[in-house]
């Protein structure tokens, strides 16, 4: 165990954890940030996606130690009161069914739009293919991303 200082959602926080602990479990078990979801644990489903210095990263395969010194943003820190344009677009397009993958999808899409405010369908495919949804909400996810792009971006 070691005291590790992380910058999460703009706040500095120290946790006493095994430095090899995946960031996912630090967020969930140590910091109580439940929006970042576990689903595969090996970086293939995208449910645990967070931003590390603005880049989408799978928090289940990133250790706490690797996260030190970087700006971590989770779904809870994406926007105050959940008013990010993508969160609103998710509601406008009625994207969610079970909702479990929504935070990872939204974080992945937010990183895409931050770099590419007007993505094509091919851009969306490239960015979002690794983020799985068992409820099959994909076309609504696509529409929600286009909706934000059409409004002038995120």
């Amino acid at each position: 165990m070691a005291l590790i200082t992380l910058m999460v959602n703009g706040k500095q926080t120290s946790v006493d954890v095994d430095p090899a602990t995946p960031l996912l479990w630090v967020l969930r078990d140590a910091l109580g940030l439940m929006g970042t979801k576990y689903s595969c644990g090996e970086g293939v489903c995208g449910a645990c996606t967070v931003h590390v210095d603005g880049e989408p990263r799978r928090s289940c395969v990133l250790t706490a130690l690797q996260a030190v010194g970087h700006q971590i943003t989770t779904i809870e820190g994406l926007a105050a009161d959940g008013t990010h344009p993508l969160q609103q677009a998710w509601l406008a397009e009625n994207v969610t069914q079970c909702g479990y993958c929504a935070p990872g999808q939204i974080m992945t899409a937010a990183a895409l739009l931050a770099k590419n405010p007007r993505p094509t369908d091919a851009d969306i495919d490239a960015a979002m293919t690794g983020t799985l949804c068992r409820c099959g909400t994909y076309q609504r996810i696509r529409r929600a991303i286009h909706r934000v792009a059409g409004q002038g971006g995120a």
């Binding site: 940030l33 439940m34 929006g35 970042t36 989770t74 779904i75 809870e76 959940g82 969160q87 998710w90 509601l91 009625n94 994207v95 969610t96 069914q97 909702g99 479990y100 929504a102 935070p103 939204i106």
Partner: peptide
């Protein structure tokens, strides 16, 4: 809109 959707998108 599904009742829980706003809570879902906020994580």
């Amino acid at each position: 809109t599904l009742y829980h959707a706003p809570s879902m998108v906020r994580g």
